[in-house]
Design a binder for these strands. Structure first.
Lengths: 232, 232
DNA sequence: CGTAACGTTGAAGCGTCTCAACAACTGTGG
DNA sequence: CCACAGTTGTTGAGACGCTTCAACGTTACG
């Protein structure tokens, strides 16, 4: 792999406290590969052979059953996916596809599990990473069970606003059909939800949204740190 | 704590590979307490002071926001809850209340984190437990996003049937309002969903259900191991 | 025996989905 | 440069699923 990518991976919370020698060993076993857009990287049900780390591009995690499909999450640099399956040596619960041309680091599952045994700092980091992933899914589950579609969209917009500098001008990080699926609704319904939010100062121009009245949007959305905060 | 309860806790996957001395240390720091029914044990947002282990009874995990409430899960003996919050030293994301009179073992968070550092086997067990919890929530999330209410009920009934001996006679482990909330619907809608399933051989007598035509129920439910199996 | 809790049923309304049509934009090839 | 098809997003109409509210039956319990 290109040496210039290494520091980025090393800076991942998952790897930063690991010993140099163990990190090198792990990276020597890893493959850095570039994939075209719209390629299905893994399919749910397949055995977890690799831990994936997104270096460049964007990966969509999704699930299928009975002819239906839903986006479960989006992974951007520098993020990992399907750690749990790798650690349990189980099959993937989600499928993944590239949204754009992507550069991905693939670390064989066995090497991850070996490193877990041999490097105490790595073991601790893995537990923190896993616990964080767990809490993210719990929050998403609460979001879906406790809120209407419009509320979910409103809270999502408020979060994007915080992520993007809190100046009321946001850019949607994914296309609208993906956003709709992420939020658990149809594209048509997302479009209508945006219309519902117009009286609350939400102005849509393609994938650029301006929030002209944050406080009224917050009154509607009632953001809850135990659902919407990414840190806690 | 009563010595007769110890072997049960020890047999938990989380503790069984731990060294004797570390297990004893952990148990000496722990409190065994009995709680009456309908007591709120923890409230979301509070700091995670203890890891809880259900020895007897049943605990409901639930979440609230904006005046609404939803059941997130039920914990029966011998199960743990809110491990992720304990490990991250964060606040609870869910509240918990007793459904019945309960005997619970409470292990201080600090001791759990200490044991994680000092006992390699325990660290490994924690990772497996966490990864398993993660996968359970992912499955529940898929269930909710990819299925209708009737399908969720049908699959739940098929799972109860497997859990309870696969003889077509099942007993609901919780009251119906709780089951409804678990499945993400109202009690009224659950009642109607049972009616919808009548043509598929689902006969309801209070909390006893008989499944007279498993194969037609399966045709409707289309169970998926990547959602419904508890093992994988 | 009366009260309370739980579950069921009905009617009405809301939210969401489906299907279809259409507009706007993108990239392609002539 | 323009016609073209393909993609993406929007809008409308109708159907469906689900919720709400209210009433009622049943069961459990003091």
């Amino acid at each position: 792999m290109r040496p210039s990518d290494l520091p980025q991976v090393r800076s991942l919370e998952l790897f930063e406290s690991m010993s140099d020698s163990n990190f090198e060993k792990l990276m020597q076993a890893a493959y850095l590969q570039t994939f075209p857009a719209q390629l299905e990287l893994i399919t749910e049900g397949d055995p977890a052979d690799f831990l994936y780390i997104v270096i460049e591009g964007c990966v969509e995690l999704f699930a299928r059953t009975n002819g239906r499909e839903s986006t479960m999450g989006m992974v951007r640099p520098v993020g990992t996916f399907i750690l749990a399956a790798v650690l349990k040596d189980a099959v993937y619960l989600m499928s993944a596809r590239t949204c754009q041309r992507c550069k991905l680091l693939m670390v064989p599952s066995e090497n991850i599990r070996d490193a877990f045994q041999n490097d105490e700092a790595f073991a601790r980091a893995i537990v923190i990473e896993l616990a964080s992933c767990y809490r993210v899914v719990v929050k998403e589950h609460k979001d879906l069970k406790l809120r209407t579609a419009v509320e979910r969209l409103a809270n999502r917009l408020l979060r994007y606003n915080i992520d993007q500098g809190e100046n009321g001008a946001i850019e949607l990080p994914h296309d609208k059909r993906t956003l709709a699926s992420l939020l658990g609704m149809t594209p048509e319904n997302l479009s209508r939800a945006f219309n519902t939010l117009k009286p609350y100062g939400v102005i849509v121009h393609g994938n650029r949204i301006s929030l002209e009245d944050i406080s009224s949007l917050e009154t509607l959305a009632k953001p809850n740190p135990l659902i919407d905060d990414r840190l806690t």
